[in-house]
Design a protein around this nucleic acid. Structure first.
Ligand SMILES: NC(=O)c1ccc[n+]([C@@H]2O[C@H](COP(=O)([O-])OP(=O)(O)OC[C@H]3O[C@@H](n4cnc5c(N)ncnc54)[C@H](O)[C@@H]3O)[C@@H](O)[C@H]2O)c1
Ligand SMILES: NC(=O)c1ccc[n+]([C@@H]2O[C@H](COP(=O)([O-])OP(=O)(O)OC[C@H]3O[C@@H](n4cnc5c(N)ncnc54)[C@H](O)[C@@H]3O)[C@@H](O)[C@H]2O)c1
Lengths: 223, 223
DNA sequence: ATACGCTTGTGATATAAATCACGGCCGGCG
DNA sequence: CGCCGGCCGTGATTTATATCACAAGCGTAT
């Protein structure tokens, strides 16, 4: 049964490798659970133990992993440290990634000071806004730059990820500019279904959508 | 192709109605797109127009809607206002819903002052924290209450939704308390795979998971 | 009235994803 | 050293989800 995997979008159907993207979206969950077991001094874990903590079936975990190789030992399970390292390598989490933020409003400031990205290897290294009153000001450790600087900064700072935190009506335009500047991965907080070319990924963060589908079940609930 | 739908979880397989939960998760998207067309003075829209803005196929939209009834007219499409109203009714969005927040830290404060919930009918009417230094203080228009007050407040204020914004290691415990108090829908910001009974829904908000799967594609990208 | 262009609603079909189930290997133990 | 409990890896199967494709209905134009 489905678990807390995020929703990743692309333009018209496009899967680089032949690994289904649902599988890719589950790998970070495995990394996280492995970190938990590592913290609790486990040396080996079985697919059943992993599955238990994620409310899914052991077979699914084994199948998922089998897309990438053979990491376990029959009768023993998986070496926690090794599997975690392998998965991180597969996902590209064995390095750090630079991101830029567009839209330095309330949400944008919260994102800049959010301490959850850094430990996972994601760094916000530039911030852009359209408001000339903001441009040039310091937010956190960052100076706010005008949108026109996006292409240069993206290139100079090796920025690969764009984070969008502008009002909905400006989000598509901002996303277009990021894509034009060569960004291929976007974390979008605006409540829109962004249109992007097939080689660009968008991860949407939208608490309202989640609430709006839960009310369906609340309404019909028997307690 | 998949679109910005959120990820909703439950305990062991459980679908109240026979409507697949993927369908339920898409309905809020339709509501949102309809709002767009309504704002642009459309009286009627076809499934093709709706699909275009969501990057999906017209057939899928029609199929989804057919789970609930016949809302369109052949040759004409759907009446924007009526379909929006029907979907809102189906989702239970034709009323307002009270929520409580647990964890009044940085994120919790941002949630309280987030202006995106109110217009959609979601109201945060209570806030709880374990820190005695915070209890009793005012945040926004809310007084921070101790966790022990959860059951009473939930009952008194008709709270149906719990929002969890506590550190990961305390999240499961908080969720258990919410469930004990009768909460059946949880918006969880903590990076954990919460364990809940089958009749409880959890919507997870986790930007890091999104980033971590996008890096897979970045790593392998051809530009 | 009738014909026509358009778009729905839906059974049939195709594709995708999850689960089953079992052969094969591991390592410990007698 | 051979047996055994346990668990992986994976083809086969089942289940879920998406798409196709078309009869039927609507409204307009002639
Ligand atoms: N998904 C979530 O959890 C979540 C939470 C809060 C807000 N949001 C969304 O994030 C967005 C921002 O919310 P906020 O509360 O920070 O709003 P805000 O008004 O405080 O900030 C928006 C910022 O974007 C800037 N901006 C506007 N147009 C721009 C453009 N074209 N290019 C660059 N910058 C531009 C503004 O100058 C401002 O600084 C909204 O779309 C909101 O719905 C999402
Ligand atoms: N998903 C997201 O977008 C996102 C963004 C930011 C933070 N987070 C997550 O949200 C959580 C909170 O982050 P933060 O930055 O606000 O942390 P914080 O430390 O600023 O706030 C945490 C609050 O929770 C309270 N708390 C601790 N244990 C509690 C308990 N058992 N019961 C009730 N309250 C308790 C603390 O007193 C504090 O007020 C973390 O899990 C973090 O990873 C998620």
């Amino acid at each position: 049964m489905a678990i807390l995997r995020p929703s990743i979008t692309t333009g018209p159907d496009h899967n680089i490798s032949d690994v289904p993207s649902v599988v890719i979206q589950r790998l970070p969950l495995y990394v996280r659970v492995l970190a938990y077991f590592e913290g609790n001094e486990y040396e080996m874990v079985s697919s059943e133990q992993l599955a238990g903590r994620l409310q899914m079936t052991p077979a699914q975990i084994r199948k998922d992993l089998s897309y990438f190789g053979k990491f376990g030992k029959q009768g023993r399970g998986y070496n926690v440290k090794r599997l975690a390292a392998e998965l991180r390598r597969i996902l590209g989490l064995d390095r750090s990634w630079n991101a830029c933020l567009v839209g330095v409003g309330r949400l944008g400031r919260a994102i800049i000071s959010y301490p959850g990205f850094q430990p996972e290897g994601f760094r916000v290294v530039a911030a852009f806004d359209a408001d000339s009153a903001l441009i040039g000001s310091e937010v956190g450790e960052l100076k706010v730059d005008p949108l026109g600087d996006i292409p240069v900064k993206v290139r100079r700072l090796n920025i690969r990820i764009g984070i969008v935190a502008v009002p909905a009506q400006h989000a598509q335009g901002v996303i277009d500019r990021l894509v034009d500047a060569g960004i291929r991965a976007i974390l979008n907080y605006a409540p829109i279904a962004a249109q992007v070319p097939p080689n660009v990924r968008v991860a949407n963060i939208d608490p309202v959508l989640g609430l709006q589908s839960m009310t369906y079940y609340l309404k019909n609930a028997r307690g």
